[in-house]
Computed example of a mutant assay.
Amino acid sequence: MGRIGTQCGSRRIAQAIVILSYFFFQSVAFGEELIDRVVAEVNGEPITYSEVQEKVRKKVLVEVSPYPATKDDDEFTIALQDSINLKLILQKAEELDLEISDEELEIEIDKFIKRRNLTRDSLRQALAQEGMTYEQYRRDWRKQMLISQFQGREILPSVKITDKDVEIYYLQQTGASGESIKLTLRQLFIRIPSSGPDSVKKGKEEIVDRVYSELKDGLDFSKAVRVYSDSESGRENGGKMPPVLLKDLAPVFRQAIEGLDEKQFTAPVKVGPGAYFFYLEKKEFAGNDEFRKVKGQLGQRLRQEQIGDQTMKWIENQRRRSEIKIID
């Protein structure tokens, strides 16, 4: 018990020393003036005003996530929340024994220099123009590499990208659904006469309402076609239509069908000589030359977006489990 108490006491003393080391006092005529201060603590580790202010000065407010800050918050608040989230990730990286050797760091910097057709001297000159030293640059690189290692260990295992995901992403980005979606549909047609006794017309409309009600109650669509359809060929094959592109449907039918998921059916579409029901049996991506050219690039972009989303979820969960104190 004494040993455990000694260890806990030593840890608290060490944390206190770390926090105090972030303070710097300058003697002036009227006494001691504090020129830096702790603005937050994350599981006992400090974040200083100067750290956050440096992010604001460099206009690098967000490195991982500003959560829970919003775009309406001031720059300092956004930078502070991002610093807290970054601290959580770096703490986890340390817990996982992740580290970047000097050799690994220099290799990555060399790759960057070659890609940009730079030299070490030109890089140092560019950094100097931005008010940054090479050592500061190395620290930033090391930090970003640690974030990548953390994501590789903690985040990537939960990111799964399928071909279907990439297809959907392409359609969302381009709005090309009508040109690229192939549908397999079943159709149920009920003829409603435009002339003749009103009682006949009313009877047909009642059948339309009954069919819709029974479909919603779970009646199999193919069975409904065989029982109620006024199309002889439809009754024979369960109303199955040849595959068709969404863009080739009549606008009134396209509007009713395009929002369906597989195994769903439309409400009755009353047009021309009667009422039509459609059942979406299969929806598939027809593909095109443009998609095939950009598929790999889209997959990478989607992967990065999902990594970002999963990292955000990790941060939200980690913040709930951590001791975070913001000091006014």
Rank of each mutant, 00 (worst) to 15 (best):
G131T: 04
I84H: 07
V56G: 03
K114E: 13
R57P: 04
E51V: 10
D73M: 11
I155W: 05
G152H: 09
N85P: 14
P157R: 07
E75R: 12
L123W: 01
R124P: 03
A79K: 00
F150G: 03
L98D: 02
E51C: 05
E99C: 08
D82M: 03
R138Y: 04
Q53G: 01
I78S: 02
S65G: 10
P68E: 11
I155C: 05
L105S: 08
K55I: 00
I109N: 07
F112M: 15
E94F: 05
V64W: 04
E51A: 10
V60C: 04
Y134D: 05
P68N: 08
P66H: 08
L80N: 00
R153Y: 10
I47N: 02
L127S: 02
D73N: 15
M145L: 15
K87W: 01
E103G: 09
Q151V: 06
L61T: 01
E54L: 09
N117V: 03
E99D: 14
E45H: 11
T77V: 11
Q125K: 15
S148W: 05
F150H: 03
D102W: 01
G44Y: 00
N85E: 09
R138T: 07
D140Q: 11
E94L: 08
Q151N: 12
N117E: 12
K143D: 03
R116I: 01
W141P: 02
V62H: 00
F112N: 13
L118Y: 03
Q81V: 00
I113N: 06
Y134R: 10
I78F: 07
S50L: 13
Q144I: 01
D97C: 10
L156W: 04
S101A: 11
E130G: 09
N85G: 08
E94C: 06
K58L: 13
L98P: 06
V52A: 06
D110C: 05
Q91F: 07
L88I: 12
